[in-house]
Design a protein around this nucleic acid. Structure first.
Lengths: 190, 190, 190, 190
DNA sequence: CAATAACCGAGACGGTACGTCACGTCTTAGC
DNA sequence: GCTAAGACGTGACGTACCGTCTCGGTTATTG
């Protein structure tokens, strides 16, 4: 768990904090998740290793803090009022997020770690970035009664196919987001 | 890449090979993927470290070799001829595989690594255990013309929702495989 | 070359340093030079391997640091004023040093390595333990003008015969240090 | 100890034997004693490692066999009848042997190993290349009665100073073999 | 306005796994 | 029965990062 600021004494250096978060972002993009180490982060940020350890327990926590804001922004769609357009745009945004974005790379790394690291899984629990964003777009795109009581299910059916194909290494170019949207709506509309 | 047996000299020890694969299986279940090391595998298998390095370059390769056979077996459904029954059984098997099975834990660990390790991603490319098993059950459950030309898509729509929910840590108890099957068929049947 | 203490950060542990030097001494006497390894030194000293590597590059450097002080002490003769007595005592001390002493075993091992290891030769260059001690005793035993300008030569003629016989495995019991001293003086006296 | 040829079966390959000895010579000159390994010798000689192990127990034995003949040749002086000339020539040959010659490098490496390896010391015992050659030249250069009963001593006084200086890394250019010869003779002549 | 308390950098510490190398032994097939 | 080939167990190599610790030095708040 992240360290807690004391009430007295020298205050935490905001400069060090942001330097560390930026260093993690940079390192993730440059050398990949596996090569992101506490040692490397500290050196890149121009900060002592102890300072990193003082405020974060795992590199997953740093990575989450470093990429969560960007991730939410990239998955937020401005609704147009047309459900086909909105859902199609969302699936396109999701695909870009998972394949091209730095924040998405962080998310995939964390999700990957969570598959075999209970601590990371616990950290991610209640931080369902994709699920939250999908629920948000569904709430404006569909009439409330349509998915009442089955939001997790509807979310899974919306994003699941895309999610599965990308995580299994399929070519994202092959995805037809509009067709997927229409098939999704075919079930929940009429 | 895995070493290649020479035509001359002392032949490879089959005993060592199976001891290593079993050791990986055991260690994965006992200490988790992160704590599986070449050193640990060798000691557990009663084999020299060099012998492990000689035949495999990464622990991902060993794990894949150790769990692929079991994985395929666990995802193979004996068709009854009733498509609802068969697809429902498949989704149940997939859920068990991903949540309870040792082979499934290996698969999830590999898939997780693949998200941030290009080498593992390459290794898994063309080894789509879930996709292959889903395609197989679809081939016997649906009339060929129904999914002609859209097999990857149909596969993704069948397994994607379940896959997404489990990998994101949702409770597998909440999944209703029969309902999911009916919704899937609703699109491809009539 | 030996590491250099930094001006900042945690200071070097003197306890570790002396533990390492003693461990080398002990190991050299117990298992011999060839079996002295960084790993063994670290374990014997109760120190991490990295700590040994941090401060020394080769085991020759550790050995030199561990035995140089003892070596000088064992080869230092307190002059009596009688040149025959002093030089005879020196040759006896040299013989004991080369055959019985732990420090002498270290010296012989280093000299041996220097014959086929350029790095060790360079390390020993300017650390002529025998030559220095011989020059010191000659300086007090002979009138300065006698060996003026030919010190290295005189040193070599004093210690060379003994040195040659011992390094070639001859029995040190056969050596007559008094007779050797008299023959040496016969040339430089009258 | 070297292996012993059997009376029956396939005879030992002379081709392999000489290939190994030449490989040792070459490797010693190219990469130095420390880097001479059984593995390296076998690969260089185009021979299996087992073949090397079958016939020699240690690399010291191979090296000795490979360089002893050359060593003796390089230290053999053709006497002219003039003792000053002969002994001076011998000391010059000894210096060249110890500093420039391949065989001499082998000798120095073996002598070095013998200082901290009992097995090598035992191997060299009774193979006193320098001592034998020095005794030979003394036998023809001095009247027999001069050194009667004190050959080892005379040998040590002849070669010891030169031996000491070279093994301790002194510059061989500084040696004046003629002057050393004259000082040596001054004691044993008149 | 000092004392205190927590921060910060630097870097050494004991660990542990890494991937490589050479060791000496063994087990094949071929000559 | 020698030979080439090469796998085997063993163990040291030198490196990297782990998480902890001990320094000297730097800010803020508090008495």
């Amino acid at each position: 768990m992240t360290g807690i600021a004391a009430k007295t004494g020298r205050p935490r250096s905001e400069q060090s904090r942001t330097a560390i978060l930026h260093a993690v972002d940079d390192l993730l993009a440059e050398v990949g998740y596996k090569a992101v180490t506490f040692k490397g982060i500290a050196e890149r940020a121009g900060v002592s290793r102890q300072t990193v350890y003082r405020w974060w327990d795992t590199k997953a926590e740093i990575l989450l803090e470093a990429s969560a804001v960007d991730a939410r922004a990239e998955l937020a769609i401005i609704p147009t009022g047309d459900r086909v357009t909105d859902l199609t745009a969302y699936l396109a945004a999701l695909t870009r997020f998972l394949t091209d974005s730095d924040a998405g790379a962080g998310y995939r790394a964390l999700l990957g770690e969570a598959q075999h690291d209970e601590a990371v899984a616990a950290l991610l629990h209640g931080t369902d970035i994709i699920g939250d964003s999908a629920a948000a777009i569904l709430a404006v795109a569909l009439p409330p009664e349509t998915i009442e009581g089955t939001v997790p299910q509807a979310v899974a059916e919306l994003v699941g196919p895309t999610f599965f194909r990308i995580l299994n290494g399929h070519d994202p170019e092959e995805l037809d987001h509009r067709a997927a949207t229409l098939r999704f709506l075919a079930r929940h509309n009429a």
